[in-house]
């Protein structure tokens, strides 16, 4: 009986180790492929895509951050979003998963020269999309509180009306507290 239990334990450990190794390899090879600069495709989005992202979704909490590589406070807070994504993408217990979308507002001419290299250099695993410079009415449509200053962040919960807009640089603690408020519906 004892031997059987030990055997099962050993098998479980092996399975875990193999799973961990394959996960490591996946992320590792993925990162190195990106760092060679091949095969990275930046998804371009329109105002319609952004508007659908900020609609409450019953299955996911979404954090949408508007940033640019040329905006220093944006670049400074970007690691917090990456950290949140890595910590909360896979939910624990009753919590809802967190999706992070980093919306680049860089100039179109900088996508190849600045945005893609930036994403690769920092090994961002959170989703990065390119919007470019939104027009006046598009900024207004995203949120009437948004004056156009960046960084700006929207957190969208799972229920209708659960949404918060913040036009400032966030600290990791502020961001994590918001996430904790939203992941338990």
């Amino acid at each position: 009986m004892m031997r059987y239990a030990l055997g099962a334990c050993f098998a479980a450990c092996c399975t875990l180790a193999v799973a961990a190794l394959s996960l490591y390899c996946q992320t590792h090879t993925h990162a190195s492929r990106q760092s060679r600069g091949t095969g990275y495709r930046m998804q371009h989005v329109t105002v319609q895509d952004v508007l659908s992202l900020i609609r409450p979704n019953p299955d996911t909490v979404r954090i949408i951050n508007f940033w640019a590589t040329t905006c220093r406070p944006c670049v400074e807070e970007l690691p917090y979003f990456e950290r949140i994504y890595r910590a909360y993408a896979i939910p624990v217990g009753q919590a809802k998963p967190v999706q992070v979308v980093l919306v680049s507002l860089d100039f179109a001419r900088d996508v190849q020269a600045k945005v893609i290299p930036f994403v690769q250099k920092h090994g961002l695993t959170a989703k990065v999309v390119f919007w470019g410079t939104p027009k006046s009415e598009e900024i207004e449509a995203v949120d009437t509180q948004w004056t156009g200053a960046i960084p700006a962040t929207i957190i969208v919960g799972t229920r209708e009306g659960q949404r918060q807009f913040l036009e400032k640089k966030l600290s990791f603690e502020e961001l994590e507290n918001l996430v904790k408020m939203y992941i338990f519906p």
Binding site: S136, G148, A149, I150
Partner: peptide, 9 residues
Amino acid sequence: TTKAVGCSI
């Protein structure tokens, strides 16, 4: 009144 992306003060 219009809006444009800018650097936060």
